[in-house]
Design a protein around this nucleic acid. Structure first.
Length: 548
DNA sequence: TCGGCTATCACCTTTGAATAGA
DNA sequence: ATCTATTCAAAGGTGATAGCCG
């Protein structure tokens, strides 16, 4: 839970132009249900605090999803980690991210309901090793893990709700357990990943996967990280210890070492035996040939069939012998990556092992997986498309009924609970190309930017199966795991908001929880793969959704 | 042999219930 | 009777460490 101090700092910073909160925003109208007349930019009321009741009507008429701006909380902290090469521990039981992913959202329609979710996609197709105090490519990436989404527990909620306070994803957990039953995001160790925030509109005209679903995607390059099972870079270890309150127990004597080291102008202070050991290990590693021992072992997995995998590639990244911070530090943190129609749908891999896993998950049936993302149109990259209003398609899970979509008609009631975690599917590695907008939209789009999808890991298990095109299947797995129950279960009452109530993290227990969970667990969806779509500044809508 | 993974540990924060006081 | 503040124990998160495993 974020401390009051942190929140106030955050909001203060957010109100300031060019503040430490990186912002990302979409522009250009695209969504049919809303008039596409919004002027770019935000009103003052939209910044920092939700508009008052009087402003709602006007705001509702003008605010479209492309006007949504997202600021990364604790951007400076993220930058610190990024510059050192962020590492995130992954464990079998799941480990939280630190820094945690928290954002400030503005520009939403206060009365429209939105779903906020995060996915974590591979930043490239390499496996890394830490050698000579830096990360180096150690081979080809292992097959991607089952793609999962972390849906914010408050979803769906009104724009006013999201804008009222920081939106915290601090309970998101990362795991390396391929059979993880808790809905944590599954990653491969020693791989580089990029978290992405998706905002999906969920009003009655845009009900969670229905036609014209609008969404936008926000990526903060400084939140990229390499997943590890134990820290490799002692600098990261120290940053974690210094900044993570849970690790306060490891401060102590090291602090004196740090002070001494600073006095001695050492770049890397001598901290502890473990750090010394790490250095020795790193030194030893540096003498090893740059070969991934697992590479060969996973060759067989490269046959997994898939399609519609996202293509995303950080243009500035040099895969060879790079420190983690391959994103230029000077780059605007609010880079916005366009979601594009995938052009190269013929790119397939056949991975029997992975497929077998996906088709027979331990606790979830096949129907609970996303199977296919919609295609994306690369042409959306062209500025000439920006003002067009054409059918769009988003690869988004869908729900049937207002309960899940949050279309209750009573905006200010607590939104019905939605599972925090869902199975999506896995599209094994493809390459990725990334569209970066920085602060000058629609310029300098690299030509290699072929395609991205909002859910690049949407599975395509049945891509070449008997399932006809246009009827690909989306499945949703709901996390019913004890962790989630514990986090949001009936015992998680709210006698009062201790500490900070200003973070969208906890919500009162709801009697609808089980129903929603069951719904999500059992529902499966499909969407037309042939539907055309266009993305405007990372926003898309869904056409031709069909319930499975 | 070695790099990566896992279980376990001590330490710390967070959380929520219980209690006391206003 | 209600609300607020304080206390405390349990739960949970952290990095460190040793040992296992492929």
């Amino acid at each position: 839970m974020l401390q009051d101090k942190g929140l106030s700092e955050s909001e203060e910073a957010f109100r300031a132009p060019g503040s430490a909160l990186g912002e990302a925003s979409a522009s250009n109208a695209a969504n049919a249900p809303e008039p596409a007349l919004a002027a770019p930019g935000l009103s003052g009321a939209a910044l920092g605090s939700p508009p008052g009741p009087g402003a709602d009507t006007a705001a509702a008429a003008e605010q479209t999803i492309e006007n949504i701006k997202v600021g990364l909380h604790e951007k400076e902290l993220w930058k610190k980690f990024h510059e050192a090469g962020t590492e995130m521990i992954i464990t079998k039981a799941g480990r939280r991210m630190f820094p945690s992913y928290k954002v400030k959202v503005t520009g939403m329609n206060p009365k429209t309901k939105y779903i906020l979710l995060i996915d974590v996609v591979p930043a490239d197709d390499h496996r890394y090793k830490f050698c000579d105090n830096k990360w180096m490519v150690a081979g080809k990436a292992e097959p991607a893990m089952p793609g999962r989404l972390y849906v914010h527990p408050d979803s769906p909620a009104t724009g006013a709700h999201w804008m009222r306070q920081l939106v915290s994803f601090q309970k998101l957990k990362l795991t390396n357990n391929h059979l993880d039953p808790f809905g944590h995001i599954i990653l491969n160790s020693m791989h580089k990943y990029q978290p992405r925030l998706h905002i999906v509109k969920a009003d009655e005209n845009n009900a969670f996967g229905s036609k014209n679903t609008a969404f936008c995607t926000h990526v903060f390059p400084e939140t990229s990280f390499i997943s590890v099972t134990s820290y490799q870079n002692h600098k990261i270890t120290q940053l974690k210890i210094e900044n993570n309150p849970f690790a306060k127990g490891f401060r102590g004597s090291d602090d004196s070492d740090l002070r001494v080291a600073r006095l001695q102008s050492k770049e890397y202070p001598v901290i502890s035996k473990s750090i010394m050991r790490q250095r020795l290990v790193s030194t030893q590693l540096s003498a090893k040939p740059d070969v991934s021992p697992l590479h060969g072992a996973h060759q067989a997995l490269q046959h997994y069939q898939y399609e519609n995998g996202a293509h995303m590639q950080f243009a500035a990244a040099e895969p060879q012998d790079l420190p983690l911070n391959t994103f230029p530090a000077q780059r605007d943190s609010s880079l916005f990556y366009h979601c594009l129609k995938r052009r190269d749908s013929a790119r397939h891999l056949d991975l029997p092992c992975k497929r077998a896993y996906l088709e027979a998950p331990p606790a979830v049936g096949e129907d609970h997986y996303f199977r296919s993302p919609p295609p994306y149109d690369q042409q959306m990259l062209s500025p000439s498309y920006c003002s067009e209003v054409t059918p769009r398609e988003a690869c988004m899970y869908s729900g049937s009924g207002p309960e899940i979509a949050g279309v209750s008609g009573v905006d200010d009631l607590p939104p019905p609970p939605l599972s925090c975690n869902m199975w999506t599917s896995v599209s094994p590695y493809t390459s990725y190309s990334v569209q970066t907008m920085e602060t000058v939209p629609y310029q300098s789009f690299p030509t290699h930017f072929t395609a991205t999808t909002m859910m690049p890991r949407l599975p395509t298990i049945s891509a070449q199966s008997s399932q006809p095109p246009g009827n690909t299947h989306f499945g949703v797995y709901n996390q019913l795991a004890q962790s989630q129950v514990r986090e949001r279960g009936p015992t998680a009452s709210f006698p009062r908001e201790r500490g900070l109530p200003a973070v969208c993290e906890r919500k009162p227990p709801s009697p609808h929880l089980n129903a929603a969970n069951e719904f999500l667990y059992s529902q499966s969806f499909s969407l037309s793969r042939e539907a055309s779509l266009q993305y405007h500044s990372g926003m898309g809508t869904v056409d031709n959704w069909t319930d499975g």
